[in-house]
Design a protein around this nucleic acid. Structure first.
Length: 178
DNA sequence: GTAAGGATTGGC
DNA sequence: CCAATCCTTACT
């Protein structure tokens, strides 16, 4: 493991504070064969509170959304379309359901592809990013810029929640632009 | 118990 | 455009 692992204090802040800082952080995964791979986080989406109609917690506290009501620093995974495990990090204080969906990591764009590459399954539900020895986050001196875009695939949430720019995507600094 | 639908992807 | 594929939720 690493001295650079992100501490619990990083996650228990409001998701609107945590999310921008998550772009460019390192997602580390130790697979069953012991091999460790690290990926730079490239694209995420913010889901914030029961009032956010795009957030699963808008349906209230259920077996599925339970972990989002926990203190930040845990993993929320769920199966979508019967095929893909989507990875989320819970943020914020207890009883304030918030999560950050990981939409893209180095070389793997799309939340379904992220889950497939990381070999996620139901056993990751509720896993602690602070203490887990198979998945965690690290920081270094890397600096990144990002752009803010509308979230994807939540048209059912209504105009406000489907157009709010809560998708953050890393933007390359173009030194040649005039 | 039953049915509908989904924070996606890949192929036609 | 549309099927794949199956768990969760919201009913009866």
């Amino acid at each position: 493991m690493s001295d650079n692992r992100l501490p619990k204090s990083f996650f228990i802040r409001d998701v609107l504070q945590v999310a921008p800082e998550l772009i460019g952080k390192i997602l580390a995964r130790r697979f069953n064969d012991g091999r460790i791979k690290k990926y730079r986080i490239k694209e995420i989406e913010i889901y914030r509170g029961e009032e956010d109609l795009g957030c699963h917690a808008s349906k209230g506290r259920t077996g599925r959304t339970e972990v989002m009501y926990h203190e930040g620093g845990k993993i929320y995974v769920y199966l979508i379309y019967g095929m893909y495990w989507l990875l989320n990090f819970v943020t914020g204080p207890k009883n304030d359901p918030q999560a950050i969906l990981i939409r893209g990591i180095e070389d793997f764009n799309g939340p379904g592809k992220v889950g497939r590459e990381l070999q996620l399954d139901k056993s990751f539900y509720g896993e602690s990013l602070i203490t887990s020895n198979r998945i965690w986050l690290e920081t270094d001196e890397y600096i990144s810029l990002y752009e803010e875009l509308p979230r994807i695939g939540i048209d059912y949430a209504g105009k406000h929640w489907s157009t709010i720019r809560w998708r953050l995507k890393e933007k390359q600094l173009n030194l040649n632009s005039s």
